[in-house]
Amino acid sequence: MKAKEFKVTWGMVVDLDKCTGCGACMTACQVENNIAPMVDASNKMRTLSWMLVYELSNKKSGAEAEVAYLPRPCMQCGNPACVPVCPVIATDKNEEGGIVSQIYPRCIGCRYCMAACPYHARYFNWEDPVFPKGMEKALSPSTSTRPRGVVEKCNFCHTRFMQAKDKARQEGGNPESLPDGAYMPACAEICPTGAISFGDVKNKEHKVFELAQGKDAFRLLEKLGLNPQVYYVSKREWVRKLGDNYAATGKPGAAKKHS
Protein backbone atom coordinates (compact mmCIF):
# COMPACT_ATOMS: atom_id res chain seq x y z
CA MET A 1 0.00 0.00 0.00
CA LYS A 2 1.43 3.34 -0.95
CA ALA A 3 1.56 6.09 1.66
CA LYS A 4 -0.92 8.85 1.06
CA GLU A 5 0.40 12.35 0.44
CA PHE A 6 -1.16 15.34 2.15
CA LYS A 7 -0.94 19.03 1.44
CA VAL A 8 -1.17 19.79 5.14
CA THR A 9 0.93 17.69 7.48
CA TRP A 10 0.46 18.41 11.14
CA GLY A 11 3.63 17.77 12.99
CA MET A 12 5.42 18.38 16.20
CA VAL A 13 8.93 19.51 16.87
CA VAL A 14 10.04 18.76 20.41
CA ASP A 15 13.10 20.57 21.67
CA LEU A 16 14.69 18.04 23.99
CA ASP A 17 17.13 20.64 25.29
CA LYS A 18 14.18 22.55 26.68
CA CYS A 19 12.10 19.74 28.10
CA THR A 20 12.53 19.62 31.86
CA GLY A 21 10.49 16.45 32.15
CA CYS A 22 7.93 18.15 34.41
CA GLY A 23 5.07 16.05 33.08
CA ALA A 24 2.56 18.85 32.49
CA CYS A 25 2.04 17.54 28.95
CA MET A 26 1.11 14.10 30.26
CA THR A 27 -1.35 15.59 32.71
CA ALA A 28 -2.89 17.94 30.15
CA CYS A 29 -3.22 15.05 27.73
CA GLN A 30 -4.91 12.88 30.29
CA VAL A 31 -7.34 15.68 31.14
CA GLU A 32 -8.12 16.59 27.54
CA ASN A 33 -8.68 13.01 26.52
CA ASN A 34 -10.62 11.79 29.51
CA ILE A 35 -8.26 9.09 30.59
CA ALA A 36 -9.50 7.80 33.91
CA PRO A 37 -6.96 7.93 36.73
CA MET A 38 -5.55 4.56 37.70
CA VAL A 39 -5.20 3.55 41.30
CA ASP A 40 -1.95 1.77 40.54
CA ALA A 41 -0.38 3.86 37.83
CA SER A 42 3.04 2.49 38.72
CA ASN A 43 2.29 -0.59 36.66
CA LYS A 44 3.43 0.92 33.40
CA MET A 45 2.50 -2.25 31.58
CA ARG A 46 -1.16 -1.45 32.07
CA THR A 47 -1.36 2.34 32.02
CA LEU A 48 -2.81 4.49 29.28
CA SER A 49 -0.33 7.21 28.49
CA TRP A 50 -1.07 8.70 25.12
CA MET A 51 1.75 11.07 25.91
CA LEU A 52 4.67 9.54 27.74
CA VAL A 53 7.84 11.27 28.86
CA TYR A 54 10.86 8.98 28.66
CA GLU A 55 14.04 9.67 30.57
CA LEU A 56 17.14 9.22 28.44
CA SER A 57 20.53 8.80 30.01
CA ASN A 58 24.02 9.07 28.59
CA LYS A 59 24.93 6.21 30.94
CA LYS A 60 27.80 8.13 32.49
CA SER A 61 28.23 8.95 36.13
CA GLY A 62 29.10 11.90 38.34
CA ALA A 63 29.73 15.22 36.66
CA GLU A 64 29.65 13.44 33.28
CA ALA A 65 26.12 12.21 33.79
CA GLU A 66 23.45 13.73 31.61
CA VAL A 67 19.78 13.05 31.17
CA ALA A 68 17.26 14.21 28.64
CA TYR A 69 13.51 13.92 28.68
CA LEU A 70 11.69 12.77 25.62
CA PRO A 71 7.93 13.29 25.35
CA ARG A 72 6.44 10.65 23.10
CA PRO A 73 3.02 11.25 21.57
CA CYS A 74 1.78 9.22 18.61
CA MET A 75 4.23 9.84 15.78
CA GLN A 76 1.35 10.06 13.24
CA CYS A 77 3.67 8.26 10.82
CA GLY A 78 3.53 9.18 7.19
CA ASN A 79 3.87 5.51 6.45
CA PRO A 80 2.26 4.05 9.52
CA ALA A 81 2.93 0.47 10.55
CA CYS A 82 -0.38 0.29 12.39
CA VAL A 83 -2.88 1.39 9.73
CA PRO A 84 -2.43 -1.34 7.11
CA VAL A 85 -2.53 -4.11 9.67
CA CYS A 86 -5.87 -3.22 11.25
CA PRO A 87 -8.35 -5.86 10.07
CA VAL A 88 -11.40 -3.62 10.48
CA ILE A 89 -10.20 -0.16 9.39
CA ALA A 90 -10.54 1.12 12.93
CA THR A 91 -7.48 3.23 12.31
CA ASP A 92 -6.80 5.20 9.19
CA LYS A 93 -4.61 7.88 7.76
CA ASN A 94 -6.87 9.43 5.28
CA GLU A 95 -7.73 12.94 6.37
CA GLU A 96 -6.00 16.09 5.20
CA GLY A 97 -3.47 16.89 7.90
CA GLY A 98 -2.14 13.36 8.12
CA ILE A 99 -3.36 12.49 11.58
CA VAL A 100 -3.70 8.76 12.16
CA SER A 101 -7.23 8.26 13.40
CA GLN A 102 -8.57 5.71 15.82
CA ILE A 103 -12.26 4.80 15.65
CA TYR A 104 -13.16 3.37 19.03
CA PRO A 105 -16.61 1.97 18.15
CA ARG A 106 -15.03 0.09 15.28
CA CYS A 107 -12.03 -1.34 17.08
CA ILE A 108 -12.31 -5.02 18.00
CA GLY A 109 -9.31 -4.90 20.31
CA CYS A 110 -7.11 -7.41 18.48
CA ARG A 111 -3.99 -5.39 19.36
CA TYR A 112 -2.30 -6.15 16.05
CA CYS A 113 -1.65 -2.41 15.71
CA MET A 114 0.09 -2.41 19.06
CA ALA A 115 2.31 -5.23 17.94
CA ALA A 116 3.04 -3.20 14.82
CA CYS A 117 3.98 0.10 16.48
CA PRO A 118 7.63 0.24 17.56
CA TYR A 119 7.00 3.48 19.49
CA HIS A 120 4.54 1.90 21.91
CA ALA A 121 2.24 4.80 21.19
CA ARG A 122 -0.83 2.60 21.17
CA TYR A 123 -2.54 1.50 24.31
CA PHE A 124 -5.14 -1.11 25.03
CA ASN A 125 -7.98 -0.13 27.30
CA TRP A 126 -7.61 -2.90 29.85
CA GLU A 127 -10.52 -1.79 31.97
CA ASP A 128 -13.63 0.31 31.65
CA PRO A 129 -12.96 3.93 32.55
CA VAL A 130 -13.86 4.52 36.18
CA PHE A 131 -13.65 8.02 37.54
CA PRO A 132 -13.86 8.71 41.26
CA LYS A 133 -17.42 9.62 42.20
CA GLY A 134 -18.21 13.11 40.96
CA MET A 135 -15.10 13.46 38.83
CA GLU A 136 -17.10 12.67 35.71
CA LYS A 137 -18.34 16.25 36.10
CA ALA A 138 -14.86 17.33 35.12
CA LEU A 139 -14.85 15.30 31.91
CA SER A 140 -13.60 17.16 28.91
CA PRO A 141 -16.17 17.63 26.16
CA SER A 142 -13.45 16.96 23.57
CA THR A 143 -13.04 13.21 23.64
CA SER A 144 -15.59 10.49 24.18
CA THR A 145 -14.83 7.99 26.89
CA ARG A 146 -13.90 4.55 25.65
CA PRO A 147 -15.09 1.21 26.92
CA ARG A 148 -12.60 -1.47 27.81
CA GLY A 149 -11.28 -3.69 25.09
CA VAL A 150 -10.41 -1.10 22.48
CA VAL A 151 -7.09 0.35 21.47
CA GLU A 152 -6.54 4.07 21.80
CA LYS A 153 -3.78 6.55 21.19
CA CYS A 154 -2.84 10.19 20.77
CA ASN A 155 -4.59 11.88 17.87
CA PHE A 156 -3.00 15.33 18.20
CA CYS A 157 -6.18 16.38 20.06
CA HIS A 158 -8.16 16.00 16.88
CA THR A 159 -11.24 17.78 18.26
CA ARG A 160 -9.13 20.91 18.54
CA PHE A 161 -8.31 20.55 14.87
CA MET A 162 -11.98 20.43 13.98
CA GLN A 163 -12.68 23.38 16.26
CA ALA A 164 -9.89 25.38 14.66
CA LYS A 165 -11.33 24.64 11.22
CA ASP A 166 -14.82 25.62 12.38
CA LYS A 167 -13.48 28.84 13.77
CA ALA A 168 -11.69 29.59 10.54
CA ARG A 169 -14.89 29.02 8.59
CA GLN A 170 -16.88 31.27 10.88
CA GLU A 171 -14.28 33.99 10.65
CA GLY A 172 -13.97 33.74 6.93
CA GLY A 173 -10.54 32.13 6.98
CA ASN A 174 -9.42 29.11 5.07
CA PRO A 175 -9.91 25.94 7.10
CA GLU A 176 -7.53 24.11 4.80
CA SER A 177 -4.73 26.51 5.57
CA LEU A 178 -4.86 27.41 9.25
CA PRO A 179 -2.48 30.08 10.47
CA ASP A 180 0.37 29.08 12.77
CA GLY A 181 -0.90 28.53 16.30
CA ALA A 182 -4.58 28.31 15.37
CA TYR A 183 -4.51 24.62 16.18
CA MET A 184 -2.53 23.34 19.11
CA PRO A 185 -2.78 20.01 20.94
CA ALA A 186 -3.14 20.20 24.71
CA CYS A 187 0.44 19.10 25.39
CA ALA A 188 1.97 21.77 23.17
CA GLU A 189 -0.30 24.41 24.60
CA ILE A 190 0.47 23.70 28.24
CA CYS A 191 4.23 23.05 28.08
CA PRO A 192 5.76 25.57 30.46
CA THR A 193 9.04 25.80 28.56
CA GLY A 194 7.48 25.75 25.12
CA ALA A 195 9.55 22.70 24.27
CA ILE A 196 6.77 21.40 22.03
CA SER A 197 6.19 23.32 18.82
CA PHE A 198 3.28 22.34 16.66
CA GLY A 199 2.14 23.21 13.17
CA ASP A 200 2.04 22.22 9.53
CA VAL A 201 5.49 20.96 8.67
CA LYS A 202 4.78 21.61 4.99
CA ASN A 203 3.69 25.20 5.46
CA LYS A 204 6.53 27.72 5.21
CA GLU A 205 4.60 30.15 7.36
CA HIS A 206 4.56 27.76 10.25
CA LYS A 207 7.48 27.79 12.65
CA VAL A 208 7.80 24.01 12.58
CA PHE A 209 8.55 24.07 8.86
CA GLU A 210 12.01 25.38 9.51
CA LEU A 211 12.53 23.67 12.86
CA ALA A 212 11.88 20.24 11.37
CA GLN A 213 14.62 20.85 8.84
CA GLY A 214 17.16 22.16 11.31
CA LYS A 215 20.52 20.46 11.46
CA ASP A 216 19.85 19.09 14.93
CA ALA A 217 16.42 17.77 14.06
CA PHE A 218 15.80 14.05 13.89
CA ARG A 219 13.01 11.58 14.12
CA LEU A 220 12.74 8.37 16.06
CA LEU A 221 13.73 5.20 14.21
CA GLU A 222 13.94 6.97 10.90
CA LYS A 223 15.65 3.98 9.34
CA LEU A 224 12.58 1.84 9.77
CA GLY A 225 10.97 4.03 7.16
CA LEU A 226 7.78 4.83 9.02
CA ASN A 227 8.24 8.51 8.28
CA PRO A 228 7.02 10.01 11.58
CA GLN A 229 5.45 13.45 11.71
CA VAL A 230 6.99 14.13 15.11
CA TYR A 231 10.47 15.62 15.08
CA TYR A 232 12.91 16.07 17.89
CA VAL A 233 15.67 18.61 18.25
CA SER A 234 18.74 18.40 20.42
CA LYS A 235 22.15 19.94 20.24
CA ARG A 236 23.49 17.03 22.24
CA GLU A 237 24.88 14.33 20.01
CA TRP A 238 24.30 11.49 22.47
CA VAL A 239 20.61 12.41 22.54
CA ARG A 240 20.33 12.45 18.76
CA LYS A 241 22.12 9.14 18.66
CA LEU A 242 19.49 7.59 20.89
CA GLY A 243 16.88 8.45 18.32
CA ASP A 244 17.75 5.52 16.13
CA ASN A 245 19.73 2.30 16.07
CA TYR A 246 23.32 2.64 15.01
CA ALA A 247 24.63 -0.58 16.48
CA ALA A 248 25.46 -1.97 13.07
CA THR A 249 27.25 1.06 11.71
CA GLY A 250 28.41 2.57 14.97
CA LYS A 251 27.74 6.09 13.92
CA PRO A 252 24.70 8.25 13.43
CA GLY A 253 24.12 10.03 10.21
CA ALA A 254 24.25 6.87 8.14
CA ALA A 255 22.35 7.24 4.90
CA LYS A 256 18.63 7.39 5.43
CA LYS A 257 17.49 4.49 3.46
CA HIS A 258 13.78 4.97 3.21
CA SER A 259 12.65 8.54 3.46
Partner: peptide, 30 residues
Protein backbone atom coordinates in the same frame (compact mmCIF):
# COMPACT_ATOMS: atom_id res chain seq x y z
CA UNK B 1 -12.70 20.49 33.04
CA UNK B 2 -9.27 21.68 32.02
CA UNK B 3 -6.63 24.27 32.73
CA UNK B 4 -4.70 26.19 30.14
CA UNK B 5 -2.12 28.88 30.47
CA UNK B 6 -2.92 32.55 30.53
CA UNK B 7 -0.80 33.95 27.74
CA UNK B 8 -1.68 37.50 28.77
CA UNK B 9 -0.14 37.08 32.19
CA UNK B 10 3.54 38.00 32.04
CA UNK B 11 4.46 35.76 34.92
CA UNK B 12 3.23 32.45 33.57
CA UNK B 13 3.13 33.48 29.89
CA UNK B 14 0.79 30.69 29.03
CA UNK B 15 2.64 28.00 30.93
CA UNK B 16 1.03 25.80 33.54
CA UNK B 17 2.75 23.59 36.06
CA UNK B 18 1.79 19.90 36.14
CA UNK B 19 -0.14 20.23 39.39
CA UNK B 20 -2.32 23.11 38.24
CA UNK B 21 -2.80 21.26 34.97
CA UNK B 22 -4.73 18.69 36.99
CA UNK B 23 -6.63 21.37 38.90
CA UNK B 24 -10.12 20.87 37.51
CA UNK B 25 -10.16 17.18 38.38
CA UNK B 26 -8.91 17.99 41.88
CA UNK B 27 -12.22 19.72 42.54
CA UNK B 28 -13.72 16.26 42.66
CA UNK B 29 -10.85 14.52 44.35
CA UNK B 30 -12.10 11.73 46.58
Amino acid sequence: FAVVGNTANPMSQGGVCPVCAAGAQLMYSP
